[in-house]
Computed example of a mutant assay.
Amino acid sequence: MRRTTPLALAAAALILAGCGSQQGTGSSDKVSAPPRGGTPSPTRPAGDCTGHAELTAADHGRTVCVAEGGEVRLTLDGTRARPWKPVTASGTALKAVNAGFVLQPGDATAAYQAVAAGTVKLTSSRPLCAQPTAPGRMSCKGIEEWSVTVRVG
């Protein structure tokens, strides 16, 4: 039987306590793109942007606000058969920084520092279906698009 130490219990309690907490959303009436659950949420006023945003494929279509000096990191999980293209950024409000290593073939990762007020659109794409592995099999030309708008405030 495994013995649980008081330190491990305290760490677990802190982790669980953080799971239910949320940052305030401000008092704005504006509505942003739907979050992962699909329900629109109020946007944050410019002075209430987050300092760190973690994005995934599920965030497609969202708009996020990051404070100047903050960081945006993203990971798009792909496969060898359906790899994500490298992420591109349109705009000058974000500066690319080292995202680390991609360990899985087909994944795309990127990291940016928010360096100036403005708006940037991050984009990538991948094949909608795997390409045929044998001659004579049907191929698919569809493309899955991914984009997130980042507002630096």
Rank of each mutant, 00 (worst) to 15 (best):
P6T: 00
L7R: 09
A10G: 06
A10Q: 09
A11C: 08
A11N: 06
A11L: 14
A12N: 05
L14F: 03
L14I: 00
I15H: 10
I15T: 13
L16K: 05
A17L: 13
G18L: 10
C19W: 00
G20T: 08
G20H: 08
S21R: 12
T25Y: 02
G26V: 01
S28P: 00
D29H: 04
P34L: 05
P35T: 02
T39D: 04
T39C: 03
T43V: 12
T43A: 10
R44F: 00
G47A: 14
T50G: 10
G51H: 08
A53R: 02
A53E: 07
E54S: 13
E54V: 13
A57K: 15
H60Y: 03
H60P: 00
R62Q: 11
V64R: 07
V64W: 01
A67R: 15
E68F: 00
V72T: 03
V72R: 08
V72W: 02
V72M: 09
R73Q: 13
T75I: 04
T79Q: 07
R82Y: 02
K85Y: 00
A89I: 03
K95M: 03
L103C: 05
P105G: 05
G106T: 11
G106C: 08
T109H: 14
T109R: 15
T109A: 14
A111H: 11
A116Y: 11
A116R: 15
K121C: 01
K121L: 12
S125V: 01
P127D: 11
P127L: 08
L128Y: 12
L128R: 10
Q131D: 07
P132W: 06
P135I: 04
P135F: 03
K141F: 06
E144N: 15
V148I: 09
